[in-house]
Write a protein that binds this DNA or RNA. Structure first.
Lengths: 154, 154
DNA sequence: TATGATATTGATATTAGTTATCAATAATAA
DNA sequence: TTATTATTGATAACTAATATCAATATCATA
């Protein structure tokens, strides 16, 4: 099995456990949204609108509100993260590896989003939280600036 | 002169320069909003609504839209920063020292916002940007979790 | 398997934050 | 002073997100 397929299965398991722990129900709609989200949006940052439009093509019966609610469930269950890059729309991203937290560099010129991870930053944050008796649940780090190509064309 | 008064004067100068550079006009409303914002909201994270309500008491003639637009100008001119802590409302904060970037710890239970600064994190970010040929313009770091008191009462 | 309880769905209404509109007015340059 | 241009403030419009609710699907239990 490919690592990606394995990952997808792991997330599925996590989500199923979440569903039964919270006494929720597993539905066809949630299955479809899960497959679409984890099948086509790994490493992407999709808005609800975009995902809905995409799903509608092959599943026109699935409603907008359901996509909204399901993405919220994905976040709650810890298999997706919600981001906001300042354009007013929430973006969702499948979580690949819950241990390795990654961050974003956003080009203010072309809007491209680059990802990076850094152990040193992570350990700094853990230290800071510890020092302030803060129980770290989540964190977000975003760098805004000019990417190399936009920099040149200035 | 106290350091705070000095800082306020510096921001005023920066803003005036911005105004004349962009061929904008200086108005009584902008003066009032500047004084209120820099007089009462140092180290705070005020929403437009809150600032408007506060100003309205002594200056009932000043409109809501003007406060909005003026805070945007403050941000554009570099004397205020805009933040979003996930509750859907933009928050504005006067910039104290443009060299020392600080960050936020947000308690997911009580909503309190704690600030911190860390040189090690800053230099990490500079390195990362350099490595990726990215011209760093700005960055945001937020830690979400439980503060010490909320942690105890669980 | 049938039944009853309960969660979900999807269409749509509502809310909330923000931005756009525009005529009246104020600030600035000539 | 006059002409030009930006600003103001009331309000409308817009947009993302959430709430509503009757119909339906899911699931636990008998």
């Amino acid at each position: 099995m490919t690592p990606v397929a394995q990952m997808k299965m792991d997330r599925r398991k996590t989500f199923n456990e979440f569903i039964s722990r919270k006494r929720l129900k597993s539905t066809k709609q949630r299955d479809v949204i899960f497959d679409e989200f984890f099948g086509n949006y790994m490493g992407k940052h999709v808005t609800v609108e975009e995902l809905y439009e995409d799903i509608k093509r092959r599943h026109p019966h699935i409603g907008f509100a359901t996509v909204y609610r399901t993405l919220k469930l994905f976040r709650e269950s810890g298999i997706a993260s919600e981001r906001n890059f300042g354009d007013g729309k929430a973006r969702y991203e499948p979580i690949r590896d819950e241990r390795e937290h990654h961050h974003h560099m956003i080009c203010t010129e072309c809007g491209k989003i680059y990802e990076f991870a850094n152990n040193q930053v992570e350990s700094c944050l853990n230290q800071i939280a510890k020092l302030n008796e803060f129980k770290l649940e989540n964190h977000k780090l975003e760098i805004y600036g000019l990417c190399s190509s936009c920099r040149e064309s200035r």
